[in-house]
Amino acid sequence: MKLSIARKELAQDIKTLPIKTTKVLTRQDLVDLVQGKFIALCVSNYYPKWLCEHLCKRLLKLPEFSRYIRAQNVGVQRTGITFFETKGDPVLLERYYAEAQRMRNTIRNTCFPYLSPIDKLRVELEEIWSAGARLENIHGRPMMVGIARMFEDSFELPPHQDVLARDIVDNCSDGLLLSQLSANIYLREAKFGGELEIWGMKPSYQEFLELARDELHFDQNKLPSSEVLYKPRAGDLVLFDSGRIHAVRPSKQGPRVSMSCFVGYRGQNVPLTYWS
């Protein structure tokens, strides 16, 4: 399938957008990111490198690590079920909410007496955003936030999008997101590979179907070249619009480990939300 002229123009425009690298997370940088002034925001040394490895060793001992229910063929494991995996299944949805508090406590207790990377991010978002920040609450129940992810050697995460609205099948939401950010705090980098790849494109669901190789992933042969190829370093925080196509290249001599969540934006005077 050929990309539309508009998509080609978008891809060309995005190539001029930089990754912004900074040492401190600020409100203005978040606003600039959601407004598309740069394609990704990297806060270097966001979490102490020595503590990254210390917590990584602890987290990797958790028995909750397993592959995503909806992506059993992809060698990426996470701690606890994520909302994306429920896809309207009432049994999985109930399991998700039932496990949310327990898994938040499990991660927090595993990191104790240190502040977990996700708790650090949650506190800072609440402090820098004038309207504050809170747990996402779609069905009147607090959601999970902050999973640890481990990439198995030689596996990749194929090109895909993360869009909350596509995972809510009952239309039970308290407001449409204007932007959904993926937040990743890296604890261990793979010796080889493991680069984060981002495209400038934000296809609609119909456009995804035309470019898809399966129900979750894009056919990379139908995509133009990506605009970003970034090798994460331990301690980095990276945020980008998860509606943009993104992928992770195969990693070796890892495992590559990070903690992640989504951050929802509904306007500058509305609280940010976060979930996993």
Rank of each mutant, 00 (worst) to 15 (best):
R149L: 07
L10Y: 12
Y265K: 06
A40T: 07
M103G: 10
R102G: 13
C111R: 03
Q101D: 12
L115D: 10
H54S: 11
S116I: 07
S276T: 08
P158E: 12
R58V: 05
N221K: 12
E215S: 13
N137G: 05
C52Q: 03
E152L: 14
E195T: 07
L60Y: 01
R102A: 15
N45Q: 12
L135T: 09
D153I: 08
G235C: 10
R266G: 05
L62K: 02
Q253S: 13
F218K: 04
G193K: 13
L10T: 15
G36D: 02
T82L: 06
E195M: 02
K191C: 09
Q268A: 12
S130N: 12
G36W: 00
E215D: 15
E189I: 06
V24Y: 10
C111A: 09
L272Y: 07
K202V: 13
F65Y: 12
L223F: 05
E156C: 14
E127Q: 15
L178G: 14
R149A: 06
S179M: 12
H246S: 01
S276E: 08
K87H: 07
Y97F: 02
T82K: 02
I185L: 02
Y230T: 01
W199C: 06
G243W: 07
K252Q: 15
E64A: 12
C56I: 04
K37H: 13
N105K: 14
S225R: 13
P117H: 02
